[in-house]
Amino acid sequence: MKFYQPTTLKQALKVLANEDDARCLAGGATLVAMMNANLLAPSALVSLSAVKGLAGITRRKNGSVTIGAMTRHQAVADTAALDGGQRLVREAAALIGHPAIRNMGTIGGSISHADPAADYPTALVTANATVTIENSRAKREIDAQNFFTGYLETALEPGDIVVAVSIPAGVAGAGSAYEKFARVQGDFATVSAGVVLALEKGVCRHARIAVGGCAATPIRVAAAEAKLVGSRLQDSAVAAAGVLLAAACDPIDDFRGSSEYRLMILPTILARAVSKARVRAETVS
């Protein structure tokens, strides 16, 4: 195994292009655990820690917020830059693992690993984020929703590096929330839900929902969002949205909960997220 410590993105991309089976080392919270468990033995580790320009949070004039791939979970949890419809991303980051994991893990590493029970994927799909990817030949952008393609599978090709994630300003006056149900503090989600809402005189005029832990990727259902838009977010409307989402899900059975259990609690987790987001949208508007 080789070890590379590039200091520029260009160098990192070059190493990745030239080494067969090299892997980026971000926080190591997942990669090193898998190496320790004898599940992975890459030919080379390309550490991104010293690469300039990959960490940090920038808020642009148009209200969008760009988070560098190497930004730690704790930095996202602590930022004041994410508010309104973007707030759920910060909320999701704060719920990842434990303090030590949040000091190590990065947004780029989390989405590249693409665990269906992880927190960022669901929050980023809800927030309509864009992932910026670069390889030695080109740079491209892809919607979070299209970035996640399966169990631990993404749109990344060999040689690609996630450089940043951008969260658009979104709808004015929106409130958002990320709700996670886990067996214990710091565990991956059994079920999670992200919600962005905007209201006008108590009537919902915009809704975006994604649920996590319930399928290979975060699940969004346009018809479920449509159930909320135009409603006063009464229990029956939220429950109807929950039913539509559950119908589109196909959760795994594991120690975090059986498939049936996950589908059973999904509407409750969604309702909690909706009521939090609603209160926040009301205080904004």
Partner: peptide, 27 residues
């Protein structure tokens, strides 16, 4: 555990608590 779960390996690196078992030494 050597998997990041138990916390027995916690150390402080540059002022922040991390998992020793998940930190690559060369890094």
């Amino acid at each position: 555990c050597n998997q990041g779960i138990c916390g027995a390996c916690s150390v402080i690196v540059d002022g922040e608590v991390v998992r020793g078992c998940l930190s690559i030494a060369a890094n």
